[in-house]
């Protein structure tokens, strides 16, 4: 048991110490790169691309980057509407939400964001599910 705990500590701690989440995500530039990659993938995904056809994609990129910077502890203040207001009447389904999560994960994997940082960000964004998805 004690050996198990020790192994677990050895396995996990080097990944989670020292840097805060904002830094682990590569700060402002790293976040903007990941969001760009995510939106690029969304654009090629027929399942959800239609949600982004009539929007100013540069503005979406700016707002999502700003929001991630904000929630991860970076020096940003998210200037957009709250999640409920900004997704009202968009008809976002659970499947759409999961598709976006998959693209965000793929983008983070591509840019070598550590798993511990990926999980911290996903853990911060997942509670927004209730305000974004319409049942």
């Amino acid at each position: 048991m004690r050996i198990g705990v020790l192994l677990a500590v050895l396995l996990f701690t080097p990944l989670s110490i020292a840097q805060n989440l904002y830094q682990q995500l590569g700060e402002k530039e790293g976040i903007e790169t990941v969001v760009e990659e995510m939106l690029y993938r969304v654009g090629g995904d027929d399942r959800i691309a239609h949600h982004f056809t009539d929007v100013d994609i540069m503005r979406v990129h700016k707002l999502i980057s700003e929001q991630i910077c904000d929630v991860s502890g970076g020096p940003c203040d998210y200037s957009g509407d709250d999640m409920k207001t900004s997704h009202r009447n968009m008809g976002v389904t659970n499947a759409d939400f999961n598709a976006l999560v998959e693209h965000l994960i793929a983008a983070m994997e591509k840019h070598d964001i550590p798993v511990s940082a990926q999980n911290q960000l996903l853990g911060l964004l997942a509670p927004m599910h209730g305000d974004i998805v319409e049942n």
Binding site: L15, V115, N119, Q120, L122, G123
Partner: peptide, 10 residues
């Protein structure tokens, strides 16, 4: 499931 559980693992 806890996406960000102990040791920042899911």
């Amino acid at each position: 499931a806890w996406l960000d559980g102990p040791f920042h693992r899911t």
